[in-house]
Structure formats: structure tokens, C-alpha cells
Amino acid sequence: MDAWLSDFIAAEGLPADFADSARAICGPLADRIAARTRAPGFIVGVCGTQASGKSTLTAVLRAMLEARGLAVASLSLDDLYLTHAERETLGREVHPLLVTRGVPGTHDVALGVRILDGLGRPGETLLPAFDKAADDRKPEGVPVAGPVDVILFEGWCVGAVAQADVAAPVNALERDLDPDGRWRTFVNAALAGPYQDLFARIDLLVLLQAPSFEVVLAWRREQEAKLRSRLAHEGGDLKRAMTDDQVADFIAHYERLTRHILAEMPGRADVVVVLDEQRRPKA
């Protein structure tokens, strides 16, 4: 095993067999990106459900690209969240569910466009960072000198397209908290509009395809169980971790679009990595 990959696995607390997945996915992908990079600002979109491992794999992919001599910048869709105050305004003026970050309509799309465009040009671009514990954007950003060769842009709905019809609720949250469809209509319209301008900048779209939404829910519960265990070991505040019921309530916000992505995106993504229930690549 490469020393840097071994160190990465140890630092992240990952299983040893993660190295096999990293090589199977990131090695060929890094070769493909390096072969296609002809001008600065080549944008790779990485779409993956919650808890699919996209952030971890993106970090490995970045290391492999840098080992090939490329200048790389990473941007997470999560770091483009609107501030808490901005989402509270949406909650008052449009729908209370928009206070919860995550769905289209809760990101600063214009900021994302400026960042992706700026990283491909000479000069300094400030990358935002979001503090999930505080549920707000951090006041300071991270300066990156451009132009960079490759931009890795990852997020749970990166590259997604709108649905034709959102009238029928898909779960209890939509049925009980959005009975008139105002929230899901707003989300779908945002995805059909400003987000497509952002996603149109993607040169290569990669999908980490989970087996099903039900598996995603199990993955997300596993994440929170690990967090609870770590907090208990460290004497931290257990309220920082969600219970299984809270995870189910939270992920219900993303069920509609997650199911749509898993059904629709495999037919048009440039690269589809089919994952099994242990997040290992099947194909």
C-alpha cells in the first residue's frame, strides 16, 4: 500500500480494505481526468448520497491527481449553504422547512458560480466554509491561488435535474408538513433554474450510486451511531448526535430528490460507480 494512503486510512479511522476501493475507483478516474485536462479549471462533479463516502473518496482522488503533478482545488456543495439568518428569512417568507439546510434553494448558487469561474483564472479565490455544529457559515474563508488545473466539486445533489411532477408527497414529512406542496415546488423550481447554471460548468460528472434510499438511511444511522460512541468515549455532549428516529426525520427532507437521482442520473453521468451495501464498488 502507498504510504500516503496508509496514513490517510489510519488518520480517518477507515477499514484497511478501503485501500482496495480507493484504488478501484480513484486510480482509473484520476488517469481519465489527467488525460482530459487541457486547460485550467476542469471541473469534476462528484454526486453521492449522504454517507456514501463521496467526501473521503474525493480527498483520495485529489491526492492522486496532485501526485500526477496537477494543481487541484476542492469545493463542497455543503460549504455554499446560505447563512442561518438567510434560511430563517426563507422560512418566514416561503416555507418553514427551508430553515433546514440541504435541499436546493438553501445554497448560495451565485457564490458557487463565482468560485468555480474564479478558480480557473489567475488570482486568488476565497473558498467558503460552513460550520455544521453552529449551522452557519464561518466568517473566514480559505484563499486559493488560481488558476488550478482541476476543481473537484462534490455534493449530494451535484448535477441533479428537476422532476417533472412533485404533486404527490413521497413521505410523511411532505404529507404532513408540506400538504399544499409549496416547499417541494420551491425546491424543484430552484433546481430547475439557478442550480442548472451552476451544474452546467461541470466537465465530468461522477455518480456514486447507492443501492437504494433505504440503504442510505441505514448508512446515515450508522454515521450517527459512531458519533454517539465517540462522544461518549470523549465525554462530549451526546445531544450533538441524532437518534435513529431523528435521522429518519432529517433524511426525509432529501428522500424525494435522492430517489430521483438514483433513478435518473445513471443514464447520463459520465462515470457511474455502483456501490454495494458496504459502500464497496461493484462496477
Rank of each mutant, 00 (worst) to 15 (best):
Val158Ile: 12
Phe42Asn: 02
Leu204Trp: 14
Thr243Gln: 08
Lys282Val: 15
Gln163Cys: 11
Thr106Lys: 06
Leu207Thr: 11
Phe213Trp: 15
Ile25Trp: 15
Gly45Met: 01
Thr49Ile: 08
Cys47Val: 00
His84Thr: 00
Gln196Met: 05
Val109Lys: 00
Gly236Asp: 14
Asp197Gly: 11
Leu70Gln: 07
Ala283Tyr: 02
Val109Pro: 09
Thr89Cys: 11
Ile115Glu: 00
Thr56Val: 11
Asp79Leu: 05
Val109Leu: 09
Leu173Ala: 09
Ala189Trp: 14
Val94Glu: 03
Ser6His: 14
Trp219Ile: 15
Leu119Tyr: 13
Leu227His: 05
Thr37Pro: 02
Ala73Ser: 04
Glu88Arg: 11
Glu88Lys: 04
Leu119Gln: 02
Leu90Met: 09
Glu234Pro: 01
Val44Arg: 04
Ala16Asp: 03
His107Cys: 07
Asp79Ile: 10
Lys132Trp: 08
Val274His: 08
Leu198Tyr: 14
Val148Gln: 01
Gly41Trp: 13
Glu124Cys: 06
Thr185Val: 07
Arg230Ala: 15
Arg92Gly: 06
Trp219Gln: 08
Met1Asn: 10
Ser229Val: 00
Gly69Asp: 06
Thr185Pro: 11
Ser76Arg: 13
Phe250Ile: 01
Asn171Trp: 07
Ala19Pro: 05
Val206Trp: 12
Thr83Ser: 15
Ala35Arg: 12
Asp245Asn: 12
Leu152Gly: 07
Gln278His: 15
Leu257Gln: 07
Pro194Ser: 12
Val72Trp: 05
Ile151Ala: 01
Thr49Asn: 02
Ala168Lys: 08
Arg68His: 11
Leu208Tyr: 04
Asp178Leu: 01
Thr185Lys: 07
Lys282His: 09
Leu97Cys: 01
Thr100Tyr: 04
Arg228Val: 06
Ala22Val: 03
His95Ala: 07
Asp17Phe: 11
His95Ser: 04
Val144Ile: 09
Phe213Tyr: 15
Met265Val: 14
Leu191Thr: 07
Thr100Leu: 05
Ala172Ser: 13
Leu204His: 15
Leu126Ser: 06
Asp244Ser: 12
Gly91Glu: 09
Trp156Ala: 07
Gly102Cys: 06
His253Pro: 01
His84Trp: 11
Leu82Tyr: 00
Asp180Tyr: 12
Val187Asp: 03
Ser212His: 05
Asp237Leu: 01
Pro281Met: 00
Leu14Met: 09
Phe8Asp: 01
Gly123Asn: 01
Asp7Gly: 02
Tyr81Arg: 02
Ala160Arg: 05
Thr258Arg: 04
Ala172Leu: 13
Pro179Asn: 06
Arg221Glu: 13
Gln50Thr: 09
Ala241Cys: 03
Val161Trp: 04
Arg121Cys: 10
Gln196Tyr: 13
Asp2Met: 08
Met265Ile: 13
Gly120Val: 08
Ile115Leu: 00
Gln246Ile: 03
Val158Lys: 01
Gln196Thr: 05
Ala85Gly: 08
Gly159His: 05
Leu257Lys: 04
Glu174Cys: 01
Gly123Pro: 13
Ala35Trp: 00
Pro194Phe: 13
Leu231Phe: 07
Gly91Val: 12
Thr37Met: 03
Gly155Pro: 10
Ala129Glu: 11
Gly45Pro: 04
Gly118Ser: 05
Thr243Ile: 07
Arg280Cys: 03
Ile25His: 14
Ile151Ser: 05
Val161Ile: 11
Phe213Val: 14
Gly13Lys: 02
